[in-house]
Amino acid sequence: MLETIALWLFGIGLAFDVLGCIGLVRLPDVYNRAQAATKCVTLGTTMLLVATALFGVGGNWALFVKSLLCAVFLLATAPVGAHAICRSAYVSGVKLADVSVEDAFVQRARVIRQEHRQRADEIEKNMEEVEKSEEAEIERT
């Protein structure tokens, strides 16, 4: 019974993996690709891990615990990483596909870019001050 459930989970997980990768190849821009790849592949691999855990029930509890631990960790972190990459893609100026209808992140991205620029300016100013003081010290000696 448990083995049948595990086999079905394994098969469905594989299907999710393949469909996510096909989406990664076929969709038009970074953001679409990211949502296809991340959601499908994360869910598919989590299913594979849960199936592996079911095979460990009874005989091999180490397999069970490790698989479930890995599944929980993957579910928590993979979407976070993909979200960070997408956000950085938008901030660094990657355009949406031509077929997109709405862009809700414009205002916020403008604010983020301004903050980045301010921080870069501050760093540059600090560097100039440091250089000036170093030159002054060299002249003094």
Binding site: D17, C21, T38, V41, G44, A78
Partner: peptide, 9 residues
Amino acid sequence: DTLGTIMIG
């Protein structure tokens, strides 16, 4: 990133 997730599979 996706390739890394598939490696876990």
